[in-house]
């Protein structure tokens, strides 16, 4: 007989089941999924949080929740890079996935209220940012001007193009997009995402700058922000690390003393001053 009272504690490694209600391949590498927990409960996430997605027999992968908490069910966008993510690409509507979470600290919404927001996204960096963008749209009065910068390597990798067009059509959102290399179908800006920064027509020093993209992008965006005299306190970065447990135990996500699965993946840049392993 077990001598402990832990029977009433939940198992932090036990996934809950969710059912795929919709799926769509967005481009060669990105799969969109809309899911609903089988329990009927909402996921209960905050913008910027992630879940551990579980495929029986293959393992788990940390994936950002891409939808806003204001929406029904939840959405994920998954790039096929390995065993778990490839399996996710083979799912059809009606199939089941295991879900643990939501985990992480997300964007501190309260700290962003009333501010002008500038989203700087590189490639699939759009995926987690989208949860906050749509939250802001659904609570538009709580925030100031909204500017969205999206950079994609090449034209064929663009995704959520209808949604980008919808944001672009909104009067109270400035949407700027670029691709790294010219393409016959593309008449917009060509160049890396930082080439869009001079086109922002609000006072950057008064705005909250929200950045998410590949590691190399941070370096360039942060240099530009420094040149523009944007205080580190006003910059929020979304960091990726290897994650296994998602709950501060396995040690994989550690960057110096911080557990990214708990205190991240979103960080205020000024909080990273004493964390040399961060960027």
């Amino acid at each position: 007989m077990c001598e402990c009272s832990c029977a009433d504690k939940k198992d932090i490694y036990l996934p809950a089941l969710a059912t795929v209600s919709k799926q769509e391949l967005l481009n060669d590498t990105e799969m969109y999924l809309h899911l609903q927990l089988d329990s009927g409960e909402p996921l209960g996430h905050a913008a910027g949080q992630f879940v551990e997605v579980s495929v029986a027999g293959l393992g788990e992968a940390p994936i950002s929740v891409s939808s806003s908490p204001t929406q029904d069910g939840f959405e994920l966008v998954v790039r096929n890079v390995g065993s778990v993510t490839n399996a996710i690409h083979n799912l059809k509507a009606g199939d089941k996935l295991g879900i643990r979470g939501p985990y992480g600290s997300g964007y501190g919404i309260d700290e962003l209220k009333g501010k002008d927001l500038v989203f700087i996204c590189g490639g699939i960096g759009l995926v987690p940012q989208r949860s906050l963008i749509n939250y802001v749209i659904d609570n538009r009065g709580d925030f100031g001007a909204v500017t969205i910068l999206q950079g994609t390597k090449d034209y064929t990798q663009r995704f959520f193009t209808d949604e980008l067009a919808r944001w672009d059509a909104m009067d109270d959102i400035t949407m700027l997009e670029t691709i790294d290399e010219a393409h016959p179908e593309w008449s917009g800006n060509v160049g890396v995402v930082t080439t869009l920064i001079p086109k922002i027509d609000i006072d950057l020093t008064q705005a909250a700058i929200l950045v998410c993209g590949p590691p190399i992008m941070y370096k360039f965006v942060l240099i530009t922000m420094k040149e523009k005299n944007v205080a580190k306190e006003n910059i929020f970065v979304n960091l990726e690390r290897r994650m296994k447990c998602g709950v501060g135990k396995c040690g994989h996500c550690q960057m110096n003393g911080q557990y990214v699965c708990q205190s991240g993946p979103v960080y205020r840049y000024s909080d990273l001053d004493n964390i040399p392993e961060a960027i």
Binding site: C2, C4, I12
Partner: peptide, 11 residues
């Protein structure tokens, strides 16, 4: 986050 696997063994 309470790890029931470790803690059950421990107890």
């Amino acid at each position: 986050e309470y790890d029931t696997h470790y803690m059950t063994r421990r107890r």
